[in-house]
Structure formats: structure tokens, C-alpha cells
Amino acid sequence: MKIDLSKPILDRNERFAAENRELFSEHGVFVLDLLASPGAGKTSTILATIAALRDRYRIAVIEGDIASDVDAQKIKAHGVPAVQINTGGACHLESDMIRRAVDTLEIAEIDLLIIENVGNLVCPTDFDLGENAKVMILSVPEGHDKPYKYPNIFARAEAVILNKYDTMPVFDFDEDEFREVVRRLNATVPIFPMAATKGPGVAEWAEWLAGRIEKQRAAAGR
């Protein structure tokens, strides 16, 4: 006997993601899901973003890592609320983990919530967390050909940060080819060259982000 189910496999994840999104929009919180390989500069980018926007917006961070809370400690040392999620080996965050982390934060006191996903370019792209935008960081030493190997993450990102841009002279990185292949995957995505730990490019990225935060606040009537 055949039974039609027509049901999403990630049903549970999608339900929690929809609930998260509803909660975030109700409070006018803009939620960023930051994706990159290990070592591309996710935490440095978050610290640079905090420095650029903390006078204008109230920021909180959710740190996703397989183990340890070193990243959350780094963020807290800057006086910003941070929650660490340990996935215990899992390669991505899921929406119910985000929900539990959000429950420990004062959601009404946040304008920008940054989620640092597990360092992985594959699995996180299939999981909706309820975020408003997925943003991808590629660092120059990883090479300009990475979008050929991990196309989905470039296709889904709403902005791409090209980090460690200051190391361009020592790596054989073809920026024209990189921009061309990203365009073929995601024609309208903005690319922000940046050196997160040094400063250049951070202002342009922060302005783009501020524009998105304002939109979310306006929609919530804040």
C-alpha cells in the first residue's frame, strides 16, 4: 500500500526556523548567519563589525562551534552579550539550537544578532535558522577558485566578504576571475573586500549591514 506524504524532510527545522523568523521580525531584530571555512576570519569580522556599529546598534552574538567557548569569551571580553553553542561534532547549526540560545538573551534589547555558524562551506547552507541574511566570508589565502568547488554557499549568500584583502600581494589570487564566477552564481550579490583586523573595507560592509538593520527596524515600527 502506497501512502503519499509530501512532507519536508527537515520539517522540524523548518518549523523552528519560521518561529524564530517571526520572533525576530516582531522585535525588529536583524539576524545575520555568517558562514565561512575555518580560519577565514569569522570572529575577526564579528569583532570589526561590533567596533563599527556598537555606537548605533545593540548587538549580540551566537557562536557555533563543535567544541569550546573560546569564541564567545572573545566576544564577551568586548562587553557584548554572547552565547556559545557546542554542536558536539555536528557540522552545522539547526534552528532549535538558535531558539534555545535566543531564549538566554534579552531579545527586546537587541538590534543586530550575529550568528557565527560552524566553519564549513557545505552543510550549513541546507539549514534555515530563521535568519534574515546568510553572508559568506572568503579569505584571500583560500584562493579565487573556491566558488567553483563550493557553489551553493555563494549562490545563497546575500553578501560576500573578501577578507584578508591586505594579503593579496603575497597570494596568487585572481580577483577578476573570482568576481566573474561569483557573478555567474549570484548575479546581484555585493562583494566587500576587507581586512577585518586592520580596518580597510570594514566601513563599506558596516554601511550595507546598517541599511539592512534599518529596514528590519522600520518593518517592526521601531
Binding site: D4, L5, I9, R184, A187
Partner: peptide, 28 residues
């Protein structure tokens, strides 16, 4: 995955209709 461009008017403003499914269709 590459070059999602309208074959008629060459626009890049296209909405994905299918391709991200993860669905259980049926069981026997």
C-alpha cells in the same frame, strides 16, 4: 548552479521555483 539567467530577456532577476527540495514523497 551557474548562470541562472533568463533565456528570453537575459535578466538575472529570477525566482527559484524548484531545486532546493528535501521532501519525503511517499512510502510503500
Amino acid at each position: 548552479r551557474f548562470d541562472v539567467e533568463c533565456p528570453e530577456c537575459n535578466s538575472y532577476f529570477c525566482e527559484l521555483v524548484e531545486g532546493r527540495e528535501l521532501e519525503i514523497e511517499s512510502i510503500d
